[in-house]
Design a protein around this nucleic acid. Structure first.
Length: 563
RNA sequence: GCCCUUGUAGUUCAAUGGAUAGAACAGCGGACUUCUAAGCCGUCGAUGUAGGUUCGAUUCCUACCAGGGGCACCA
């Protein structure tokens, strides 16, 4: 439609003797009452031509109306408005056709698309072994899962990768802590093994402030691990088993799509040497204060990237480079990679992406860091090291308690929906100040509102199928209603979310969609007999239910049977 | 010090350079034995400051103010 309108306008400009390229746009006005499409062409041109924009717009409209009819049979009305906008109003047939399309698409929408072999890795969640799964990890998990779903619906072959933090000096710290103050057998028998491991991790940092040799001991322990020391490896493996059990339980509870690959950092342990070789071959490496680093050109304004410590053991960056090199070999040169990771790592990812360019691994745009802000207390940052964290379990329990006060049966699905929506409704870049009331919101702009509205629409359909009820008094409205217009925009919203890799556009859209439904059907009388308007309404409600379901699927929010 | 990022109603969030800045919560005021109250209707209320670019700026640019984050052996 948009292209059609653009074509018509270009034709008119030609007729008016304007030959130059004009960079006008055709778009949806923000307000439905300003039409379905709108163009600013008159405002762009008016200055150049020295004509009042409204007069020019009128002129263009007259020309438009003078064109042969074919090509814009679906346009009902063309109007000049505001400062010189030309607004196009579409007729009912157009929207009815769209609703029929939605009803037909039912079975093969989005998630069932085969994919056109555009492979993309979405790396998200990536919790650290033996650290708590707190609200901090929640964001990457929820947003990453949603982005993966959006990409799937946009015909990508998505590879969901959980890049576990199962390697690094932290394990040295943990091994030292277990040796000094813990007992692994007892931890394994405990009901809350992860909490005990975290306690030890926190204790390590407390003690390390008093005893400076502890940090060195931790580094030594990690070096042992890298050298495949038997005892160290045993402790490491047992910690991983404990953590994985915990993570799997949480993913299931959160309705996160199962990962395609779960390769921890340790998986890439033997793939790092190849990167060092590449760096040396390209002469990009340098020794500095005993460490092995990559330096960037001055105009990049990036600090050097450390690959190896002075004791020769590896750093995060080297493991990441090894990871991406391996992925390229495994999935092909065209593979795209998205890392959904906190914004505090923005600078780091700039370094990684730049380094991979220099190494010739990837080209511009192939590697993307999707950043999200952090959950914070109003007093400051959450930190595992300091022990001031909020466990995800506590949040889920509290959310279920609140949802359970209204309906015990649906409390789990509602609690998770509320939690997820609260995250997905906002631009992910900003920080979130932790607040119980906000995070567990089940009123107003909430996942619960969406679930509830979807359930209610479904329930109308069920009653209608039983031939008992129908919507009365509302005949077919003479004007196109907002609900129809919102339904039409769904694919564009998904496309926009995909382009910007921002699920929140879908979230806010769904709120508007649901409101427009409630606005129209929220206060309706029910009749017990059929009438001739039934098909219009039932199709509209069906299309609505279907779109809500698709939209909520993109956010990873389930719809209960009843509420 | 350098780099990144965020400032929108009392609060939590929207807004693809467009039209009267859109919701929700809280506040105030309503409707109603229903498919639906986890809802519906009405009302009050906002772009950090100062410039610039533009026909048009919450959006782009500059400076300032105020938060948050990063910057060498953590990840």
């Amino acid at each position: 439609m948009k292209e059609q309108i653009e074509k018509l306008i270009k034709e008119v400009l030609k007729n008016l003797g304007i030959e130059d390229e004009v960079s006008f746009v055709v778009e949806h006005p923000t307000d439905f009452k300003n039409g379905d499409y709108s163009t600013n062409v008159a405002m762009i041109l008016s200055k150049k031509m020295g004509i009042n924009p409204r007069d020019l717009a009128e002129k263009i409209v007259i020309e438009l109306k003078g064109l042969p009819k074919q090509g814009f049979g679906e346009i009902n009305k063309i109007e000049v408005a505001g400062a010189g906008f030309i607004n196009f109003y579409l007729g009912r047939e157009f929207f009815t056709e769209n609703i029929n399309k939605i009803l037909e698409e039912k079975e093969n929408w989005g998630k069932n698309k085969k994919g056109e072999n555009k492979k993309i890795i979405v790396e998200y969640s990536s919790p650290n072994i033996a650290k708590p799964f707190t609200i901090g990890h929640l964001r990457s998990t929820i947003i990453g899962d949603s982005i993966a779903r959006i990409l799937t619906s946009s015909s990508f072959k998505v590879i969901r990768d959980n890049h576990l933090g199962d390697w690094g000096t932290q394990f040295g710290k943990l091994i030292v802590a277990i040796k000094n103050w813990g007992n692994l057998e007892e931890i394994e028998k405990s009901e809350t093994p992860i909490k005990l491991l975290v306690d030890l991790y926190v204790k390590f940092h407390d003690e390390a402030e008093k005893d400076k040799t502890l940090e060195d001991k931790a580094r030594a322990s990690f070096l042992k691990l890298e050298n495949k020391d038997k005892d160290a490896t045993d402790v490491w493996k047992r910690c991983i088993d404990l953590s994985m059990k915990e993570f799997e339980r949480i993913y299931k509870k959160l309705n996160i799509t199962p990962f395609d690959t779960i390769y921890g950092e340790s998986f890439y342990e033997d793939k790092m040497k190849a990167v060092i070789d590449d760096v040396k071959k390209k002469n990009l490496g340098k020794e500095s204060e005993g460490a092995f680093i990559i330096e960037f050109s001055e105009e990049k304004k990036l600090p050097p990237l450390l690959l190896l410590k002075k004791d020769g053991s590896s750093l995060y960056a080297l493991r990441d480079l090894a990871t991406d090199k391996w992925r390229k070999n495994e999935y092909g040169n065209d593979i795209r990679i998205i890392n959904e990771v906190g914004s505090e790592q923005k600078g780091y990812f700039k370094q990684i992406i730049e380094a991979e360019n220099m190494l010739g691994y990837f080209t511009e745009g192939q590697r993307i860091h999707v950043a999200h802000g952090l959950y914070r207390f109003s007093e400051g940052k959450m930190s595992t090291r300091k022990g001031n964290v909020i466990w995800l379990d506590d949040i889920i329990n509290e959310a279920e308690k609140r949802a359970g006060e209204i309906n015990e049966e649906t409390k789990e699905i509602v609690a998770i929906g509320a939690l997820k929506f609260n995250d997905l409704k906002r631009d992910s870049l900003g920080d979130i100040i932790f607040n119980w009331e906000e995070i567990l919101n089940i009123k107003g702009d909430s996942g619960t509102y969406l679930q509830y509205t979807a359930v209610r629409a479904n329930s109308i359909l069920n009653k209608a199928d039983m031939n008992r009820s129908i919507i009365d008094e509302i005949m077919i409205p003479s004007e196109i209603i907002d609900l129809e217009k919102y339904l039409y925009q769904f694919p564009e919203i998904v496309e926009y979310s995909y382009q910007s890799l921002q699920p929140h556009h879908i979230a806010t859209y769904l709120i508007e969609l649901a409101s427009s439904f409630n606005n129209f059907y929220g206060n309706t009388q029910i009749l017990v007999e059929e009438n001739k308007y039934m098909t219009y309404h039932l199709n509209l409600i069906k299309a609505f239910t279907q779109t809500m379901k698709n939209g909520l699927w993109l956010l990873g929010i389930e719809v209960p049977e009843k509420m």
